[in-house]
Design a protein around this nucleic acid. Structure first.
Ligand SMILES: [Mn+2]
Ligand SMILES: [Mn+2]
Ligand SMILES: [Zn+2]
Ligand SMILES: [Zn+2]
Lengths: 136, 136
DNA sequence: TTGTAAGTGAAAATAACTTTCATATAGATA
DNA sequence: TATCTATATGAAAGTTATTTTCACTTACAA
């Protein structure tokens, strides 16, 4: 983490460490406010503003990802450097990262049909995780 | 439109007509505030609040869709009843609807590997449309 | 060490959205 | 067509989410 930050001119502060740690320790996606609440337990005195700023930087660097499906826009989950996507439990918010989206064929078809030069894609699945199935 | 609304206990008001018309006439996705500005030209006196309420209902009924990719969370584009997805120009916001996402194989693999019961998916492509390519 | 560019947090400002409530109207019914 | 009522509207206020500003602090390169 430190290296990646420094390479981009950012500093590694205790606050940034704490925010990343909090997101990484959670199984489910968290809003900035929820992250703030958790971080404060280990790091009182941190400001919500710093949480916002940190989330932005960590997203830019790929340490964390924003999720969208199921009304979760603007909440975050730990990331990984490789290209991947998210499978989200609509009940408890648990997120599983997966790879192998295999969309290049579709991408090519769209590019041909529309003339768009395709840059990226957003793919998320929404479902019910095993533990939530038992409860329901 | 009128029939679908009435079937669900909603009324067809001039305001709702105007909001849908505005979204449908736009090639690109619009925020509630942008929709408000446009609707007001034909329908002064409408409140932003009514725009919010209408967008919610029209989304629920499938007349319009919310888009997410490229920081467009919370903006809307005209919809269609069949299952489809969006290809969005990251420069001008133009949206093209497409069908044939063909994700059932991937869906099945994920279901087996994770135990999730998969309910739905969110798929959007981001790219540069033909006219924006010429300009750039 | 020291210097400095980058980061922090308090406060205020702005933007985004929702709740409340009195009034108005779509459209079903007689 | 006139009446009735559930639904919709808009003004205002309230809440939540996010950003800007600025004086002070700190990471870390030299
Ligand atoms: Mn991720
Ligand atoms: Mn659509
Ligand atoms: Zn779950
Ligand atoms: Zn374009």
């Amino acid at each position: 983490m430190g290296g990646t930050l420094r390479r981009r001119g950012y500093k590694l502060t205790p606050q940034r460490r704490a925010v990343l740690r909090t997101v990484a320790l959670s199984q489910d996606h968290l809003t900035p406010a929820a992250i703030y609440d958790r971080v404060r337990q280990q790091h009182p005195g941190i400001g919500l503003l710093t949480v916002y700023r940190t989330l932005q930087i960590l997203t830019e660097l790929g340490f964390i990802c924003e999720v969208h499906a199921g009304g979760s826009c603007g909440s975050y989950i730990v990331g990984s450097p490789e290209h991947h996507h998210h499978l989200i439990c609509s009940n408890c918010g648990k997120v599983i990262n997966f790879t192998g989206c295999n969309l290049s064929e579709l991408e090519q078809r769209l590019s041909q049909q529309t003339g768009f030069e395709i840059e990226s894609h957003l793919l998320e699945f929404l479902g019910c995780c095993r533990s939530c199935q038992k409860i329901a």
